[in-house]
Write a protein that binds this DNA or RNA. Structure first.
Length: 202
DNA sequence: GGGTTGATGTTC
DNA sequence: AACATCAACCCG
């Protein structure tokens, strides 16, 4: 299966975030099926980095569609995002969870002491499992200049997952935007469908 | 299983 | 001061 072309990432960021669920992320000898994403838009989204960080705005302006945006959060974890631009709405997509698919030995060695279901069930965890860190900021993931061994593709057998939309996780601003996309019923997601609102209701 | 808490550092 | 988190720990 060929890798997704850069044109895939030159569309509306919400659309792309939804369609990435069920795709396979290939990264340096390992891969996983994407089971959870979150979209953040450059305009009209108070929760997006671009709303508060000039450096993020500059990255969107200068970067090409399909480039990785990796940053350090909570003093401990790297989070892996993708730049989407050229469609109706530009923005960044946070890859939040994967179902491990290949290179399992490598992933297991990086996630020692954890169950398979928890290797990639969260944005910090998947960065650990795949070996993603700050040196991987700005990596081209599609089209011309794509880094060898990295990219996205339709898995063998096609996209098997039904996608559902829910609110995003771990934010205080624009918390009601339904811009988190999940593979329905999948056990590798970070927070199951409906759980964020259920917690908040208490 | 569910709730709570501590560990960490960059950004503005 | 806030933050796009995780795992260890309690309690049951």
């Amino acid at each position: 299966m060929p890798f997704l072309p850069s044109s895939f990432f030159k569309r509306d960021v919400i659309t792309v975030a939804r369609e990435l669920v069920g795709m396979e992320l290939v990264w340096d000898g390992s891969s996983g099926i994407i089971v959870e994403t979150e979209a953040y838009t450059v305009e009209g989204d108070p929760a997006a980095h671009t709303a508060t960080r000039p450096s993020a705005r500059e990255f969107v302006k200068v970067g090409r569609a399909g480039t990785s945006y990796v940053y350090f959060n909570y003093g401990m974890y790297w989070l892996f995002n993708l730049l989407v631009k050229g469609g109706e709405r530009d923005g960044l997509i946070l890859i939040r969870a994967l179902e491990p698919a290949s290179g399992l030995d490598q992933m297991q060695s990086r996630r020692q002491g954890h169950k398979l279901e928890n290797w990639c069930s969260g944005p910090g965890k998947l960065a650990l499992a795949m070996g993603i860190d700050g040196t991987h900021h700005g990596v081209q993931m599609a089209g011309k200049g794509r880094r060898s061994g990295c990219g996205f593709r339709v898995p063998a057998g096609g996209r098997q997952h039904e996608v559902v939309a829910d609110v995003r996780v771990g934010i205080s601003k624009a918390a009601e935007f339904p811009w988190r996309f999940l593979a329905k019923g999948n056990s590798h997601v970070s927070v199951p469908f409906g759980k964020v609102k259920a917690m908040k209701a208490k």
